[in-house]
Every structure is written in C-alpha cells, then in structure tokens.
Design a protein around this nucleic acid. Structure first.
Lengths: 164, 164
DNA sequence: TGAAAGATTCAGTATTGCCTGAACATACTG
DNA sequence: CAGTATGTTCAGGCAATACTGAATCTTTCA
C-alpha cells in the first residue's frame, strides 16, 4: 500500500519541517531539528536507518546529529534485546535539558561580564553602573528561572509517581 | 598621543570581541555583537562613524546592524542638539528587551506545538501525552519567567526612583 | 575466521549569509 | 541653488557550515 516514503503523513512532515526551521534559529542544524521533530512525534524509538529513511537524509548526517543531540541531553539512546542497532528517542524529561541549555548559554554571558577586567569600568562611573546593573539583573533572572525549572521538575515527577 | 585606532584599550577590545562571539551563537551577526559590546562599554552615545572607526567595520554594516538592533529594542537612537548625526546607545532597561527576545523565541515553539494538528497525536496516546506534557511545561516556565521579568522590572524601577 | 550488518569518519561540494565598496538618496548649510 | 555631510541600499566576493557518498572501523554471528 505504500512505497518507502509514504510512512509519514503530510501534516506530520509539515510540522517536522517547521520544528526543524525553528531549531535552525536556535543554533542547531536543520537535520538536527528534523531528527528532533521526528522523534517528538514518534510512537517508539527509531533506528538510524529509520530516521534516514523518513527524513530523506544521509545516514552520515543522522549519525553525527543524533550523537550531538544526545550529548546535549535532548535524545536518549535505547537498545532492543536481540537487535544490534542503536535506537533513539526524545529524552524523558524533555524540558529539563532544552531549558538547561538555554540557561547555560545565558549564564555564559553573565560570566563574560563578571570576568570583565575591573580596569574597563574603572574609568567611567556610568559604564560601571551599567555593567553592575546588567549583571544583577542576570543573576536575579537566572536564579528565578533556575528555581522555576526545579519546581516544574518536582511537580512533574510527583504527578508521574502520585504519592502512595 | 594616539592615532585613530588607539582609542580602544586592548582589554576593552578583547571583551568586545568575546561579547561579539557570544552574540554570534545567539543568532546575531558578529558585527551586531561588536556594536552591542562597544556601546555597552561606552561612556556616551556613539555615531555611526565613531562605531565604524572603533570597530574597523564598514559604515554600511554599522548602519544596517544598528537599525536591526534598534528594531529589537536593544539599542536606542539619540540626537544631540546642533549635530545632525545619529547617535546610538544601549537601551536603558537593557535586560528587558534582551530577555523578552528570548521569551518570544521560545514562545514561538510553544505555538508550534499548540497548532499541531490534532490528527497528528490522535493515532498514538504516547505521542499525545508527550506533546501535552511538553506544552504544559513550556506554559508553566514561560509564565514563571515572564513574572520574574516583571518583578525585576518593578524592582529596578523603584530603586531608580526611590519612593518619596 | 570470514562475512555481513551497522555505525562512524572524512574529504569534497554546495548553500548560505556576512560584510564590503560603491552608487544612491536625503537633508543641511552657505 | 550648489555643495557637502550623513545615512541607506545593493550587487558581488568571501568564508563558514551543513550535508553527502564513499571509505573505514567495529561488532556480531555462522
């Protein structure tokens, strides 16, 4: 009833493509985004060949990108007994890694400001003040957001294992 | 005591460059980042030529990038009486626009998920559940972070105009 | 041990997007 | 009005990067 490609509904393919486009603006590669999108909408974990087939991409790219996404905690490797292929699925606690990545990125900016040699600001009170102010805002927001992330983590954990 | 280029201390130039590199990972152009960095460390607003000189970039790029940064609320245009040049400075409430930009970007992802045609998830309970879960997390975190941003806004406003 | 399946690495191509110089537009000034 | 200062737009060159096909490495199984 279907040749190789027909596995994906048109609407699904469409959504995957939009997710991929979004991921591109977030600094991932397009294929990385497609992989993520595909797995987000996948019923079960998928093999490299499965992904390559569905996404019409080379296995080389799939291999590199899956591992890259895995390193960032977005994907997880899983195995199936009696099968030597590697399967990938979207991380269980998905929002944690994706949000953490964002946190990390902007934490890096704070660090940049903290490391700013003192002599830079020394000359000018207005610069010093601006730097201090910016840094304080970042610290505050980072802390608040980190807390929120943890709260969500706990909340979601407890809703999954409702208390005895 | 100094030819054209010597206006920037080495340590300053260095920090600007690192800021620019960071901005690049955030989806801005390198020059955009340099402009931001330069103005962040600037005593006073700067003209296009001033920026072009300091950053050793073409005036064309400076013009395009400043306007792009202005559109995103990161820079502000200011004028000086008796001078027909345009001056730029970093926005007063800097963290607001930068953080809002981030918020917007990931709000866009939530939207993607919300618009996900129902028929996509319908087939599979596991997909539907994953989508719902992800969406809820995003909503929660977006709300929390939005609140934090407002709190900071109020706090910083009141510290600037200490109550009579 | 040999063969085959699977995964990874690598060199080359193609696409993309940044940046620039030069042309152009606009607004002051005398 | 002519001339000049300032800002913007545009076509093209250049560098970075993603992606691919082919070669290579690794593991499993007969």
């Amino acid at each position: 009833m279907s040749r190789r490609e027909a596995t994906l509904q048109a609407s699904t393919a469409d959504l995957i493509e939009r997710i991929a486009l979004f991921f591109e603006t977030e600094g991932f590669s397009r294929i990385g985004g497609r992989i993520f999108g595909r797995l987000l909408l996948a019923d079960a974990a998928m093999s490299l060949d499965g992904l390559a087939g569905d996404l019409a991409a080379s296995k080389a790219s799939i291999s590199t990108e899956t591992r890259s996404l895995e390193r960032r905690g977005i994907l997880e490797r899983v195995g199936k007994p009696g099968d030597r292929r590697v399967y990938y699925q979207v991380a269980a606690e998905l929002p944690i890694p994706t949000m953490s990545l964002r946190l990390d990125r902007w934490r890096r900016f704070s660090q940049l400001l903290e490391e700013a040699p003192a002599d830079i600001a020394r000359g000018s009170p207005v610069v010093r003040h601006r730097l201090d102010d910016t840094l304080q805002a970042h610290r505050y927001l980072l802390a608040e957001f980190g807390d929120a992330l943890q709260r969500w983590h706990r909340r979601s954990a407890s809703s999954r294992h409702p208390r005895a």
